[in-house]
């Protein structure tokens, strides 16, 4: 374990050094990584500024959901979600083989070599939006914080699960970077209060596909009004993680039988 952490740190360091070779582009990209995530908050703010609302939610409550979502993405994208582009790119140009000749699990190697420094911009954005929204809302109880921490850990696990599914798809669907769009579109439902969706859709994004857990489920705990079905969402998330691990293994097996 200690060893693996060391490997991860060396990997992150080299990735950062690589990216810093073009400093200007790096900082620009970091800013952009933040900007592209601002679509939902911008829409939300403009809706409220034009005098409209999501019925039953004030602007900062809605922004808190998006803050939590972005915080999760901000941690996932630089630190482990890089497996997606790393896998797609490597399978496409044939260097995925190089991960297989290392004496470590392929998944671990894909994480190590997929550290994505510019996505730290998302983390900065997530922290900012989260604190900004929270500062305009009544302070949560310590108990709520505790629950939030537990749920947010699950958020990160689900993010990892999505990473595995997309990377797995990237193995068989060669060179297809559009898998990101599939992910973005599905998870967008987690950016808004679940109450705005129809009943059946609410059930789907909470209890079938873990989407609400990415934003609204942990956020509503901080707001003192937990979402219905929170426990179920947790269960579904854990199942999803298991499924995604299995999916990744299956796709990897396919790769080693076809050889890219």
């Amino acid at each position: 374990m200690k060893n693996n952490i060391r490997i991860y740190l060396v990997g992150a360091k080299t990735a950062l050094a690589s990216r810093m070779a073009y400093r200007g582009d790096f900082f620009m990209s970091m800013l952009i990584m933040l900007l592209v995530e601002m679509a939902a908050p911008v829409i939300t703010i403009l809706i409220y500024q034009n005098g409209a609302t999501f019925p039953g939610w004030n602007m900062y409550e809605a922004l808190l959901i998006q803050g939590v979502f972005l915080l999760g993405k901000g941690i996932a994208y630089p630190f482990f979600f890089g497996i997606v582009w790393n896998t797609i790119e490597r399978v496409q140009n044939g260097t995925f083989d190089l991960l297989l000749i290392k004496p470590k699990s392929v998944l671990f190697m894909a994480i190590v070599t997929g550290f994505d420094a510019e996505d730290l911009g998302k983390l900065v954005g997530g922290v900012t939006l989260f604190t900004l929204a929270l500062s305009r809302l009544p302070a949560p109880e310590p108990g709520a914080w505790l629950q939030f921490m537990v749920l947010f850990t699950i958020t990160l696990m689900v993010m990892f699960g999505y990473g595995l599914v997309l990377a797995g798809l990237g193995i068989v669907w060669i060179g297809n970077f559009r898998v990101y769009e599939i992910f973005e579109s599905i998870t967008s439902f987690g950016l808004y209060p679940t109450a705005i969706f129809s009943k059946s859709l609410q059930t789907i994004i909470t209890l079938v596909i873990p989407v609400a857990i990415l934003g609204s489920v942990p956020a509503t705990v901080l707001l003192g009004r937990p979402s219905p079905g929170t426990l179920g969402a947790v269960g579904v998330s854990l199942l999803f993680l298991l499924f995604s691990l299995g999916f990744w293994r299956w796709m990897l097996k396919k790769y080693t039988s076809v050889g890219g």
Binding site: R6, I7, V10, G11, T14, A17, S18, R19, K102, K104
Partner: peptide, 15 residues
């Protein structure tokens, strides 16, 4: 590509 070979060697040293 963008960094000296020695940095890549260090990565292998760790692995």
């Amino acid at each position: 590509w963008d960094i000296p070979p020695i940095d890549a060697f260090y990565l292998n040293k760790a692995i």
